[in-house]
Every structure is written in structure tokens, then in C-alpha cells.
Design a protein around this nucleic acid. Structure first.
Lengths: 196, 196
DNA sequence: TGTACATCAGTGAACGCGCGTTCACTGATGTAC
DNA sequence: TGTACATCAGTGAACGCGCGTTCACTGATGTAC
């Protein structure tokens, strides 16, 4: 029908979403302009509105996509009973701290998401619920945590991880930043019972 | 010497800093323009540069001021041995969740501070260190926590509080938001040993 | 086989607007002589 | 006592720029007949 394959446009859309995920996590929501986002995939600003109805539409889509990626990543990581402590160490690594663009959307954007409109916050909530469900299930299955308290425990670990990375990025002293990461790991691990 | 009292200008400066603290926590750093910040204290944009050398200068000053306020607030709150759990409940209250402008700067701005320049991050680090010192000292004195681990423990409580409030604001479902606050309180309290 | 038209992803200029910052100016008060 | 000048916090218009969004247009391909 046209010179483009059937999935050409949707592939471009996916490229925009992926690149915008990195850009938003690096520069923030308010800090990323539409023209820049399109330049990241070698397109011009005008083409943006053939793919999204507004910047807000893109942001909500990106948050949904980023959270889905995070769910998949966690599900894959928690494949064996000793996996959670390893995941915690990776999350609280210097590599993650120094590369927000490739990292967790919550650590990079949570307070900006909190200031966003209903679509963005809806997408975030759906994602975070799935993450907490996965972690809670793992805590029950692999660590013998009472299912009634597993969700609470998952949330404790989640909040420690997110704010620890935020804090390690915000602080201007490299030694303190590393201390923060180490302390965060100790605290997160203290919420994980030894394997049983 | 002039029609103004000696402290007139510095009082205006303080008014700007206080109003900007509320505005930044409500709308974010990138979301708050200089003209709006000045309008908040019934002045025009031009007068801004008689008080600050740049917007960045103001933001660093505001972060310093906000963190000093937070330190004072915590020092005052932790006056007796049973004070910390009460502070946790207040921090994780619906009132705090629903009023970012009057609340904790970390909960409102931490990831935007992490993206800021050295001046802002320096001001933040100085403040957060004092907060952690105060909380760690209280944990040792009032809860018998080993001084070697008190700082770690303080950081665990701090990160749970900050990210829990961020999360409760980001989520679009009121029931889940309240569950998050409750779970955050349970987790934070679990890091505080019973009084001894 | 040739020509007219349809499809479609993307271009790039333009819209009005708000951004951070600069600067000539205002107007009220004080001092000098 | 009157006048010229200094001080000072603040005004408000203007600077160039980037924002989100719109839209007439391009150019390559396909279909119709």
C-alpha cells in the first residue's frame, strides 16, 4: 500500500518511547523538550504529533513502558531464592547511581511523577503495583514471609532502594554518596529474612 | 540614609526565600519561573536580581533554608525518648502528603536536586548530614542503638520516609496511597528499637 | 504503457507564550551647603 | 529655607531563546484505468 512496511510507524513510535525513556530519566520531565526528544531519534518536532496526541500522552506512555520494563527485569532477576539480595546490590551499585538514563524510573522521576496529571500517575500506579506484587510473592515463596505482611515488606525494600539512589545522586561528596549506598543495602537486606 | 529601615532589603530577601520554598516544593524547580516567584511576594521580576545573582543562586539558597528548617523541626520534635515514632506518624500523615508546599523538601524535590548543579547539591548535602546526625544521636541516646550502626539506621528511616511520601503522592488511587503510608510507618518503626 | 490520483511518514516554518536575564528609569527619602 | 544631588528598592519593558503545538507541504510509493 505504501513504501513503508506494515509496522514501520509503530516501530518509529517504539523508538521514540525508548529514547524518551532515557532522556526523561536523564533530564527530567520538565527538562526534556519535544524537539530534543525527536532529535534523539533523528526526526523533527513536527512528526511528534503523528505518534502522540501531546507531550503528556508521551510521558504517560513512557512511564507505562518503563515500569513494564522494570517488572520484566525484576521477574527475571528473582528466578532463584538467593536472587533478591543480589538484585538489591545491583540496584544500589555505583553503576546505577551514575547512569540514571539506563536506570530505574522511580529513582529518577518519582517526585516529578507525583506532580503530574492523572494519566501519568495512573500508569505509574499500575506499574508499581505489579512490582510490589512480584516482590511480595518472592518474599513469601523464597523467604517464608507471612503473605499478610509480605506486601508491606516489599514496600519497605522498594522505598529504601528508591530514596537511597536518589540520595546518593543528590549528595555532592563521593565518599558520603558511597556510604549512603552501602547503608541502604544493609537496611534493605535487614528487611529480607535469611533463606528458609 | 534612606527611606528604608536597615533590614528592609534583607527582610524582602527572606520573604522571597520563604515563598520560593513553598512554590518550588509545589511546582518543582523547573516548574517555577522567576516572574511567578516574585509575584508570590508582590514584586516584579526585575527586582529579583537585586537579591540573587541567578535562579540557581536562589534555588541553592532555598534548599539550604529548607534543610535548616527541617533540622530545627526535627531537633525540636526529638525532645523526649518516645518522640521518634510520633515524628514518623506525622511525616507519613495524609496532611503531609496533601500539602507538599508546607512539607519536606526531600519528599518534594529530591530527584530534581539530584539533577541540579554543584551549589544546590552542596546545600542539600550539608543539610541532610545534619539531619542524619541528629537522628542517629537520638537513636543512640533514646533507643540504645550502637553508635556504629546508628547512622545507617537513621538513613534507613530517612529513605523509607522520603520515598513513602513520594510514592503516596505519585499513586492515583486513594486507598493504595493510604496503604502505602501505613506500610511505610510500619517499616520505619521496625527500624526503631523499643525504648530502653 | 502512461498518466492521474491516493497514501503516508515525515519536514520545517510558524503560532503565541513563558523562560532567565538586563537595564534605563521611577519615586520616595536623605544629605550638603 | 531652599535647592541640588545621592541613595536605594523596586518597576516594567525588552533581549534572545526554547517551549508545546499546528499545518501546509514534500517526496517516495502504490493503485486505477
Amino acid at each position: 500500500m505504501a513504501r513503508y512496511p506494515d509496522d514501520y510507524k509503530i516501530r518509529t513510535r517504539r523508538r521514540i518511547i525508548a529514547a524518551a525513556g532515557r532522556r526523561l530519566k536523564r533530564d527530567g520531565i520538565d527538562g526534556s523538550g519535544v524537539a530534543t526528544l525527536m532529535k534523539d531519534v533523528d526526526l523533527t518536532n513536527g512528526a511528534f504529533y503523528a505518534h502522540f496526541s501531546s507531550k503528556n500522552d508521551l510521558v504517560a506512555t513512557v512511564v507505562e513502558d518503563q515500569m513494564a520494563t522494570q517488572v520484566a527485569l525484576i521477574e527475571e532477576a528473582l528466578d532463584d531464592p538467593s536472587a533478591l539480595p543480589r538484585f538489591v546490590d545491583g540496584y544500589l551499585s555505583i553503576a546505577h547511581r551514575d547512569d540514571p538514563a539506563a536506570g530505574c524510573p522511580s529513582a529518577a522521576l518519582l517526585d516529578e511523577i507525583a506532580r503530574s496529571g492523572p494519566e501519568v500517575r495512573h500508569a505509574y500506579r499500575a506499574g508499581v503495583q505489579r512490582i510490589l506484587d512480584v516482590v511480595a510473592a518472592h518474599l513469601s515463596a523464597a523467604h517464608g514471609v507471612d503473605p499478610d505482611t509480605a506486601w508491606n515488606r516489599a514496600l519497605g525494600i522498594y522505598t529504601i532502594l528508591v530514596a537511597t539512589v536518589q540520595l546518593s545522586r543528590a549528595v555532592d561528596d563521593p565518599d558520603i554518596s558511597e556510604d549512603v549506598l552501602r547503608a541502604g543495602a544493609a537496611n534493605a537486606l535487614s528487611l529480607i529474612p535469611a533463606n528458609s
